[in-house]
Design a binder for these strands. Structure first.
Length: 884
RNA sequence: GGGCGGUUAGCUCAGUUGGGAGAGCAUCGGCCUUACAAGCCGAGGGUCAUUGGUUCGAGCCCAGUACCGCCCACCA
């Protein structure tokens, strides 16, 4: 055993920790804006400070790290801008729970003290996800880590808010918004998740004021009737149109409300009569505005009925619903109840059913911003990959509605608006004002609300680079190169970054948006706590090592399709890591006598020229597929090449030469070649598997400081060698053919038989002769003899391959009947091929219309198959005689 | 209601210019051969959901159907 010999199995944990620390100490991840190279920048989708690394983060950040490491190795000046998001509602919820465990509410503590506690919480626990990203190997520039609530980001937020306000794109207004009674805040439209549930449609009679009849309305939310201020019917509707202009009595409240006629009402639905509750339904709100109806708010911000709800005051909204239905029934006003499927909005943070509520909030008029954002994708300034996501993007952008940005919580960027206590002035300013701009009063109070968390996230690509200051970072790295994220935040985040980037930087925030899929469980089910199928990436890393985990994610990341992650797969790739480890171990065990350098062209033998050609082909494909975000192809190309070409064939072919210390020159050339290829392999693999590749690279002779800053191999066209590949193909066919016979015939693997090869092609025969030693070693033979003319032996098994016949003497080794059966099977197989192609070639249309080269190819193939069949037939008959 | 995906080997999935279907795991047979049993050598397994069309030729292009999944949407 040599002192160079590494451990027999690869142990990821110590290696990972060691190298990550080293990389950090050496500052390899730090970007330098003043450096001369071309920039490449990715901004991280900032994880919530409250976050735990889940499988989605793992995929997202693995892909980003692959790109970043790849570009870094290609010599780009590379910045992976990282940081975390303050996550307003989520974080506030966490700290509120903490406070609740002490028996208090945030109101008991007060705003200032509460915010202080959130900061304290953040300082204590907010680093968790950052450390988890490090375990994943993420090569972020941690020295530039940002937080959406830090001083710089906050300044950017104010700058943007004030500018948009001054341009009239931010305004304050009474509108219907989605209200979460549990989080006690307004939400934007996309923060209300619509879910189909089976509810009920209640048919309620509204008696007419003249006492002569009634109109029946249908509603899914009877409790809102308390706030009804009209009933609407379609003026075309013969059933109801006579009531238009008359009044009805609102049951339970005994309020007289008008019947109005509007074509909005669908004659087909329900009874064709629609109750109008402007304060609690978006459509009713519009109708209410149109007809100047009163807006009566009967459901309060806590989800309980208000004083306007009369005797139902104080009841929870769902309790009130029950009570109202019961009361209507008692009064004989409930006509019927039907089952009804409909979509109900839920808070995206706490899943509580949201209430459409009338409320005074701040909004962004996004239409003008969206127009630019649409153009930028249309004309390709930003490319969405895969392209079909741009359809979704356009669809949303074209139907965009005003964005409600105020939140009634404490944790977040407080709205920079002050209200004068002495006049009606609203002051919106970057700096906190001391007195009213209109009346000079110092009786000012700042708006209590904070901004939607996504407001600050929308600025992330430029706020993190120093904006509104003109920094070298901004100059160098904006627009960023690529954004990598899941489709679930296409609207929340990507779309808004596009709008804000274009508005404030006049340029798109990123050239490419790579949208990846969702990670599901091994059966394609969405991972969720309730299903109990959530896998923890940190546990997978613990169990399989980071490299195999990352490789799995990359290998599964086919564009436009969700990932079903199975542990079996990760286990398989752990074997792959180990395979590479052991191949390196083999090379290092045969290091003695090695001197640095590379053999001259003349010293390269067939196997060397072949592997060099293959390596360059693979390098080309790795570069190409990474440039196009085809991560799964990159992974498969490398897997296939490393395992099945390099390990299975090249290393095996190198063995006899490495063991033969007599031929020092040949041995050295092979050693040098082995290290050269191995080195390129780990370099190509490094973006996907950062740790094991560094560990190996460091052990290889003549490398350098770190693989992190090594040069990514690129294809050298002059190294491609089609001749060598064709010749190796022959060798591989002969060896495989021989092995096949041995395997099928159950010949003792330790036996070292002699083999005769019949080959009429001089070129091929020469190659086989020249490589006879190699063929013997690969096929486990004692010797081979290549013949141009040869009388087929009586007792031999046969492998018929392209351009050659292999004869394995069977004296006393096997059963002739068995061999005959095997040959029969082979003949049948070939016959099928012949039939297929003959049919094709006898079709005039094919012969006449298909391109000539395709037709010729088919003819050549047919000739080959027929030749093979003839040989098999001959051998079959010869063996038949033996049987008899 | 609109839009987007999916349907390929027992399982999970690849298959980008249309030219006789691939991988990993699982299965079967043989090997502790001095890098690796987390391995080596061999084998079996698919009318590529369905119907029709374009084409000399379709897993791939077009149209329809079925089933599954996702997103968006103010029919109460």
């Amino acid at each position: 055993m040599s002192e160079n010999e590494p451990a027999k199995g690869y142990d990821p944990h110590s290696v990972e920790e060691k190298w990550y620390r080293t990389w950090m100490d050496k500052g390899y991840f730090k970007a330098d804006a003043n450096d001369g190279d071309q920039p490449y920048c990715i901004v991280i989708p900032p994880p919530n400070v409250t976050g735990q690394l889940h499988i989605g983060h793992a995929l997202d950040n693995t892909l980003q790290d692959i790109l970043i490491r790849y570009k870094r190795m290609k010599g780009f000046k590379t910045l992976w801008q990282c940081g975390t998001d303050h996550a307003g509602i989520a974080t506030q919820n966490v700290v509120e729970r903490q406070v609740a465990s002490e028996g208090k509410t945030r109101f008991d503590i007060g705003r200032e003290a509460f915010i202080e506690r959130v900061w304290k919480w953040r300082d204590e626990y907010g680093g968790k996800i950052v450390n988890q990203l490090k375990k994943l190997g993420a090569s972020c520039d941690w020295s530039r880590e940002r937080f959406t609530m830090d001083e710089g980001c906050s300044r950017a937020v104010r700058e943007v808010f004030v500018t948009l306000y001054n341009e009239g794109l931010i305004y304050r207004g009474q509108k219907l918004i989605n209200w979460c009674p549990r989080c006690h805040t307004a939400l934007s439209d996309i923060e209300a998740e619509h879910e189909d549930i089976t509810g009920a449609l209640y048919y309620i009679k509204y008696p007419t004021a003249d006492g002569k009849g009634h109109l029946t309305v249908a509603t899914t939310r009877p409790e809102t009737m308390l706030g009804d201020t009209a009933v609407a019917v379609n003026p075309e509707d013969d059933r109801h149109k006579q009531w238009v202009g008359h009044d009805v009595i609102l049951p339970l409240m005994n309020r007289t409300i008008p019947v109005i006629g509007d074509t909005y009402v669908d004659v087909e639905f329900g009874t064709g009569a629609l109750k109008i509750t402007p304060a609690h339904d978006p459509n009713d709100f519009d109708i209410g505005q149109k007809y100047k109806l009163a807006m009566i708010k009967v459901i309060g911000d806590d989800g309980a009925m208000t004083a306007e709800a009369g005797r139902y005051k104080g009841l929870d909204r769902f309790e009130a619903r029950k009570q109202i239905v019961e009361d209507l029934e008692n009064e004989g006003l409930l006509e019927k109840i039907e089952q009804h499927q409909h979509a109900v909005g839920h808070c995206y943070r706490c899943k509580t059913i949201v209430e459409p509520n009338l409320s005074l909030q701040w909004f962004v008029d996004v239409k003008p911003l969206a127009e630019e954002a649409i153009k930028a994708v249309e004309d390709g300034r930003t490319r969405i990959v895969p392209a079909n996501w741009s359809k979704t993007y356009f669809e949303w952008m074209r139907n965009i509605r005003d964005w409600c940005i105020s939140r009634q919580i404490w944790w977040g960027h407080r709205i920079p608006a002050w209200y004068c206590g002495d006049c009606d002035e609203i002051i919106v300013a970057k700096e906190d004002p001391t007195k009213c701009a209109k009346c000079g009063s110092s009786n000012l109070e700042q708006d209590e609300d904070v901004l939607d968390t996504w407001f600050s996230s929308a600025l992330w690509p430029f706020s993190t680079l120093g904006w509104p200051d003109k920094t070298p970072e901004l100059e160098t790295f904006y627009p960023t190169s690529c954004l990598v994220t899941g489709f679930d935040i296409l609207f929340f985040w990507v779309a808004r970054m596009m709008m804000m980037g274009l508005k404030f930087m006049d340029t798109v925030p990123f050239g490419d948006v790579y949208i990846h899929a969702l990670v599901r469980d091994e059966h394609g089910q969405k991972m969720s706590k309730s299903r109990g199928n959530v896998v923890d990436p940190l546990e997978l890393i613990e169990q399989y090592g980071t490299d195999s985990f990352r490789f799995t994610l990359a290998a599964m990341a086919a564009q436009g399709r969700d990932i079903s992650l199975s542990e079996k797969r990760i286990e398989g790739y752990r074997h792959f890591v180990n395979k590479i480890w052991n191949a390196s171990r083999f090379a290092l065990m045969n290091l003695d006598g090695y001197t640095d350098g590379f053999p001259d062209k003349e010293q390269l033998d067939l196997k060397d020229r072949w592997i060099l050609s293959r390596l360059n082909d693979v390098a080309a494909k790795v570069n190409e597929t990474l440039d196009e975000y085809r991560f799964n192809e990159t992974a498969h190309i490398l897997y296939q090449f490393i395992w099945h070409e390099f390990c299975d064939w090249y290393v095996e072919m190198a063995k006899p030469q490495l063991y033969d210390k007599e031929n020092a020159e040949r041995r050295l050339a092979t050693q040098q070649m082995l290290f050269r290829v191995l080195r390129s392999i780990v370099e190509l693999l490094h973006p996907i598997m950062p740790f094991v590749t560094e560990e190996i690279w460091q052990k290889l002779p003549g490398t350098g400081e770190s693989i992190v800053i090594a040069r990514m191999p690129e294809a050298q066209k002059q190294e491609l060698d089609p001749d060598a590949e064709a010749q190796m193909d022959t060798i591989i066919q002969v060896v495989s053919g021989t092995r096949n016979v041995r395997g099928e015939m159950n010949i003792n693997p330790t036996a070292r038989p002699h083999v005769d090869i019949l080959c009429h092609n001089d070129g091929v025969a020469d190659i086989l002769k020249a490589q006879s030693e190699m063929v013997c070693s690969l096929a486990g033979l004692a010797s081979i003899a290549v013949h141009r003319e040869f009388t087929r032996p009586e007792a031999a098994a046969t492998a018929v391959v392209d351009k050659a016949e292999v004869f394995l003497s069977l004296e006393g080794i096997i059963d002739f009947a068995e061999e005959q059966k095997r040959l029969q099977k082979e003949i049948e197989k070939v016959q099928k091929d012949i039939d297929f192609i003959s049919k094709k070639l006898s079709n005039d249309k094919f012969v006449n219309r298909a391109p000539a080269d395709i037709v010729q190819k088919e003819r050549d193939k047919l000739e080959g198959f027929e030749e093979k069949k003839a040989k098999l037939q001959e051998n079959f008959e010869r063996i038949g005689k033996q049987c008899a």
